[in-house]
Design a protein around this nucleic acid. Sequence first.
DNA 1: ACTTTCCGTAAGTTGTGACTTACGGGTAAG
DNA 2: CTTACCCGTAAGTCACAACTTACGGAAAGT
Lengths: 113, 113
Amino acid sequence: MAYEMILTALADPTRRAIFEDLRGGGRTVAALAEGRSVSRPAVSQHLKVLDLAGLVEVRQEGRSRIYSLRRGGLAPLRTWIDRMWDDALTAYAEEVARQTEDMANAKPGDQVD
Amino acid sequence: MAYEMILTALADPTRRAIFEDLRGGGRTVAALAEGRSVSRPAVSQHLKVLDLAGLVEVRQEGRSRIYSLRRGGLAPLRTWIDRMWDDALTAYAEEVARQTEDMANAKPGDQVD
DNA sequence: ACTTTCCGTAAGTTGTGACTTACGGGTAAG
DNA sequence: CTTACCCGTAAGTCACAACTTACGGAAAGT
């Protein structure tokens, strides 16, 4: 239920750039918007999506809100990838098994490449 | 250059469902389309995107094309996640260091929570 | 040769989401 | 209290991508 939102959130280039900018540490919305080609409200909307996906967290500090990476935010995505990886290996092994089985059932002397 | 395409490819629910279906082993386009709520050409277009992202591979077999998961296709995404993970830890450690430094510079007896 | 099957692509439609500007609510400063 | 700053949200615009149907090519069957 969570990795879908993460994938959707990280698919957009602007949003991904914002996310990657936060590697440098917590930043304000204005700081994230400056130097970028989009308006500040756009950045605010992107941050909302990243927040709902559990990728960032907010900390109020005076009149400015500091956004920073949320620890373990990418964990659900990583788990999904690992499971896909394992299943892919299993599927591949089964396919090999099927092929060798076919070869065993084949009459000796049949053409093989 | 590669993980961006992977994220874009996996963001779409239909395309992700097709990708996950391939965990069971190689399938034809018609087999992937049946039971789904989209037409066969739509599935074909999705498979093209997945192919460009390096996530699947095709094997011609008679008049049907068998699509299957490409081994290591998710590797670039996993690498990117790991790097983000490490950078997040570094950023967090630096932030903690900054805070403890501030506390050391503060006058003894200052309010702390 | 004709038909059927399996598929990719072209062309056109439509919903969605990434933007914009406008506005209003808080908080610090004067 | 007024001003200035930082920010979220509402409303509206617009491009794009996810679909559809229609078509054509390529391989196998009759």
